[in-house]
Design a binder for these strands. Structure first.
Length: 154
DNA sequence: GCCAACGTTGGC
DNA sequence: GCCAACGTTGGC
């Protein structure tokens, strides 16, 4: 099983929205590296750190899991969609997606500032790869975030 | 609101 | 193929 971190702007779609829906198709990702993770590596049951970006504070706020096998993002074929891609065809889809399923909220949000301050998390892709909305997480990093969430806020 | 990082586009 | 212009993400 693999571990991931997925970013979302809570003003657009938050952990509370995910809890309410139970499961959400993660369409609209138009970055090749993020696409490759979803298409080539993310599989049902993989664990996901659910991260609020552009938030106050930006933080890991919950746990989700990959809820489906990857499949072509239907919005790439929809001319009325913001995510329409004229160069994609059903025979040769360009963008793939997975669904995200709610697991639970963290006991408390673990803020980006805390992650940056934790030396054992210095190599996290979240910190190294700015603006990548889907990034891999090492098992020990995943565990450390969970441990921090169960501690008192510093 | 500013701006750094960085991916994409398009002229040549 | 190079690279400048431009657009987007996302922290602060």
């Amino acid at each position: 099983m693999n571990y991931w971190l997925m970013k979302t702007e809570p003003d657009v779609f938050s952990i509370d929205d995910l809890k309410e829906r139970g499961r959400e198709p993660w369409d609209g990702v138009r970055n090749y590296e993020a696409r490759n993770f979803m298409r080539d590596a993310m599989r049902p049951g993989d664990a996901v750190l659910f991260y609020h970006s552009n938030a106050s504070p930006s933080a890991v706020v919950g746990i989700a899991e990959v809820g489906s096998d990857p499949y072509p993002d239907p919005t790439q074929f929809d001319e009325s969609s913001d995510y329409y891609d004229a160069k994609a065809t059903c025979a040769k889809p360009r963008w793939h997606m997975i669904e995200v399923a709610y697991v639970r909220h963290l006991a408390r949000p673990v803020a980006l500032s805390e992650i940056k301050a934790n030396a054992s998390l210095a190599e996290m892709a979240l910190l190294k790869r700015s603006r990548l909305s889907v990034c891999p997480v090492k098992p020990e990093e995943f565990d450390e975030i969970l441990r921090m969430a169960d501690e008192e806020q510093p």
